[in-house]
Amino acid sequence: GSLMYASIFGNVSAIIQRLYSGTARYHTQMLRVREFIRFHQIPNPLRQRLEEYFQHAWSYTNGIDMNAVLKGFPECLQADICLHLNRSLLQHCKPFRGATKGCLRALAMKFKTTHAPPGDTLVHAGDLLTALYFISRGSIEILRGDVVVAILGKNDIFGEPLNLYARPGKSNGDVRALTYCDLHKIHRDDLLEVLDMYPEFSDHFWSSLEITFNLRDTNMIPGSPGSTELEGGFSRQRKRKLSFRRRTDKDTEQPGEVSALGPGRAGAGPSSRGRPGGPWGESPSSGPSSPESSEDEGPGRSSSPLRLVPFSSPRPPGEPPGGEPLMEDCEKSSDTCNPLSGAFSGVSNIFSFWGDSRGRQYQELPRCPAPTPSLLNIPLSSPGRRPRGDVESRLDALQRQLNRLETRLSADMATVLQLLQRQMTLVPPAYSAVTTPGPGPTSTSPLLPVSPLPTLTLDSLSQVSQFMACEELPPGAPELPQEGPTRRLSLPGQLGALTSQPLHRHGSDPGS
């Protein structure tokens, strides 16, 4: 009898404990919600809404976190579960008819179910419309201010047509639940991603989709105040780019002037030289400038040598048109050559190039014969006009050509200096018209024969001689050997007369 009593008592207590286990969990969670309300000092109306929603959600799901349970299964099984949970929507909604099984599984994985109690606001006026909503159960109302403009029910759709707008718009009203509602919502990016994977279904979906109420604000059109608020930074940046392009296009129409201050000032006329910023005076940081632009901040801005204009002085008759350009485009679109090309026009420029290279940067340069637009006047290309890779490749080509020119210049200078040193070592320090008596009659020769300089066969020296023939050397430049009979510069000019005159010897006659 005691054994029977113990078994009955144990079973009854276990049954009672299981009955009250759900209630215990409910009270535990309710205590957490109330502690949250007390800690954050939530006001009474919002506090009442929180408690009511918790009670309804507990009775609806029995305190089970559906998302946590669903995430515990593998992905393939999750797709089947989501397809079952959203079967009513996918079967009865017209846009989803005719979709393949794979497309429906992908869509079912992207849908999220939302449960809303009465009085809950789903979308506020001015919120971004980031999702498309399908009503599965219940009814909602749409308000503009305090005026109800629409009441939607089961199988209705609200949001915005995503295929017509590249960016999400703003809501033009509040969406509030009238009863307990079940909503299926899919985010904008998720829907577009699935439709991109199934393009054959995309056309059918957009053609058959009928949005019951379009929440997009109709005033959000390009150029409206609301649109400016939504895309303020983007609009200002776009206007700045367009104004920069218009100014650079105007600059290219004036090829007669070359400016070292950047493309923003290349198009300024002579009357605007004294102004601080020219056409860019209202925004000094709008356009890029070269490193020399920092010198323009000092006094005497109108007389600054940074602004270059072609000189009108005539060229000498024998002067060549100019050196070879550094870039391939210089032959086609440049009416002034790079300062480095002028360094190779003569030997005198070679000796004085490194010492006063900055001073020569603004000297007169030889002109190319074609009066085409200036290379320095070409505006900086924006990322939309020329690819970045093209600019980098041009810079690399320019750097390689500069290296080759520097190597060639160093070799030419070394060769010229070597020839000058050899000339100085071969010439005796001094010569006299009267020579010392020699031991015999073989001493009648006034000077030792001097062998002429070897013929220069280097390509670089031939180019130097060509430049010497075309360029007029300055007075202080050293002379180079030329073709024809060679003669030492330090010898007297009348050596031929010395050989014809008898030598005057000093000596005593033994017979006297």
Rank of each mutant, 00 (worst) to 15 (best):
L178M: 12
L308F: 06
R216V: 04
L192R: 08
E253T: 08
D189Y: 04
L409T: 04
S460D: 11
D251N: 08
G323Q: 15
L308R: 08
F351W: 13
Q363K: 05
G323E: 13
P225C: 04
P369L: 09
L380D: 11
G496W: 04
G223Y: 10
R422G: 06
Q466S: 12
L261W: 13
Y165E: 12
L178I: 08
R400C: 05
S224R: 09
R388M: 05
R367C: 07
D509T: 09
Q423I: 11
L453C: 08
P225A: 03
V149G: 02
T336C: 04
N219L: 08
V149M: 11
P270E: 06
E295A: 11
E160M: 01
A266C: 12
V391F: 15
G138H: 01
D509C: 11
D509Y: 08
A343G: 11
L395P: 05
P373V: 09
S508R: 08
P502R: 08
L417R: 08
D509H: 15
P225S: 13
E295G: 11
D190A: 03
Q423L: 04
V194T: 08
S345E: 09
Q501M: 13
S136I: 05
P314N: 05
I157H: 01
G262D: 13
L152H: 01
R245Q: 12
A266D: 14
S235P: 10
P449S: 12
L376G: 11
E160V: 03
F353S: 11
S303M: 06
E392L: 14
G159Q: 02
S341M: 11
D189E: 12
L152Q: 01
I142Y: 01
N172K: 10
G264L: 13
T179H: 03
D190G: 02
L132K: 01
S382Q: 15
C368P: 12
H506G: 13
R265D: 14
R315N: 10
P475E: 05
V464P: 11
H506C: 03
R137W: 03
V464D: 14
D146H: 07
T455G: 10
P452S: 10
E319A: 07
L495F: 01
S462V: 12
P325T: 01
G264A: 09
E392C: 15
C181S: 08
Q254V: 07
A370R: 08
S171G: 02
G264I: 10
S348Y: 05
Q423S: 11
P325H: 04
G298I: 08
S393K: 01
L132D: 01
G359V: 08
G267H: 10
E141D: 01
A497G: 10
L448A: 09
T212E: 03
G264P: 10
F467I: 14
K154C: 08
G145T: 08
Q401P: 13
Q423F: 08
H504W: 06
I140W: 01
E479V: 10
R273P: 08
F213C: 08
S286T: 04
R394K: 13
N172L: 11
L162F: 11
T336D: 07
G496D: 04
R315G: 15
R273I: 03
Y180H: 15
L458K: 13
Q482H: 09
K185T: 10
K154T: 13
P168Y: 03
S272M: 10
S462N: 11
S345Q: 14
I378A: 08
I151P: 01
L215N: 01
L409G: 04
P446S: 10
D335M: 13
Q418K: 06
P225L: 10
V147K: 11
P478L: 11
L376T: 10
K239S: 15
E471D: 13
L405I: 11
G440K: 06
P310V: 03
D156W: 01
D203E: 11
M197W: 06
F134N: 01
L419P: 05
P199S: 04
N403K: 05
N163F: 08
I140F: 01
D190I: 03
Q421M: 11
R167Y: 08
W206T: 10
S227E: 12
T455S: 12
L473Y: 15
L420Y: 13
S460T: 08
S136D: 07
S334E: 13
G511H: 12
G173T: 11
G173F: 09
F244A: 10
E331R: 09
T457W: 06
R385C: 05
R358V: 08
M197C: 08
F344S: 06
Q501W: 15
A497H: 09
G355V: 09
L183S: 01
R137A: 10
G267W: 07
G223P: 12
D412C: 01
P379Q: 06
V147I: 07
A268L: 08
L503D: 15
G440D: 11
L340A: 13
V194W: 05
G264W: 12
G267N: 10
R505W: 04
K250Q: 10
V194Y: 01
G126R: 02
S508H: 11
S285G: 13
L152T: 03
S243P: 08
A497R: 10
L195D: 01
S139Y: 07
P321L: 15
E231T: 12
D146T: 11
L398Y: 08
Q237G: 11
G476K: 08
G281R: 05
A411D: 12
G323I: 09
E331M: 05
Q399G: 06
L426N: 08
A397E: 05
P305Y: 13
D196T: 13
R240M: 12
G126P: 01
T425L: 10
R236F: 08
P475L: 11
Q421C: 04
C181P: 02
P288S: 07
L461D: 13
F244N: 12
E229M: 11
N338I: 12
S357D: 08
H187G: 09
P439R: 10
T212A: 10
T336S: 10
F205K: 01
S312E: 09
I350K: 05
S285K: 11
Y133D: 02
P225T: 10
Q399T: 04
S348W: 04
S333N: 15
Y180V: 04
M197L: 07
L426Q: 06
N214Q: 01
D127P: 02
F234S: 12
E231V: 11
F213R: 03
T252V: 10
F311C: 06
N172G: 10
G138E: 01
I350Y: 14
Q482S: 11
R246Y: 09
E193A: 13
F244P: 12
I221M: 04
Y180D: 11
E364W: 03
P270S: 14
C368T: 10
R408D: 05
F353Q: 07
L365T: 10
N214F: 02
T212M: 05
S334K: 15
S171K: 01
P325I: 14
E472D: 13
N163L: 04
V194A: 04
P383T: 14
Y431W: 10
R273Q: 10
T455M: 10
V434S: 11
K239N: 15
E364V: 07
L209C: 10
P474A: 13
P481N: 14
S312H: 06
R265C: 12
S462A: 11
S410G: 09
H187M: 06
P383E: 04
A150S: 06
F351P: 11
Q421I: 03
P314V: 08
R360E: 08
S500Y: 11
S333E: 07
P454M: 09
P478E: 10
E253Y: 07
V427T: 08
S290Q: 14
N403H: 12
E229Q: 12
A343P: 10
L402I: 11
S451Q: 12
V427S: 08
F353L: 09
S333I: 13
I221K: 07
L340C: 09
N172Y: 10
I378E: 09
A260R: 09
N338Q: 12
P452T: 09
E472K: 05
Q254G: 10
A433E: 15
G355R: 11
Y180K: 03
S345K: 09
P320R: 10
R137F: 07
G159R: 02
G159D: 01
P168W: 05
G169H: 01
T228C: 08
T436H: 06
S374L: 09
D156G: 04
L420G: 05
S443W: 14
S460W: 04
D356C: 04
S304E: 06
T415Y: 01
K170W: 09
D329C: 07
R385D: 13
T457P: 12
M424Q: 05
S432G: 11
G267M: 10
Q401Y: 09
G281I: 08
D174Q: 15
D249C: 11
Q401G: 07
V148C: 08
S462L: 11
A343D: 07
P428W: 09
S451L: 11
L143P: 02
V258H: 13
R240A: 13
N377F: 03
L480S: 05
D182I: 05
L498E: 10
G226V: 10
D146G: 08
L498Q: 05
Q421N: 04
E297N: 05
L132N: 03
L495N: 08
S313N: 12
T130S: 07
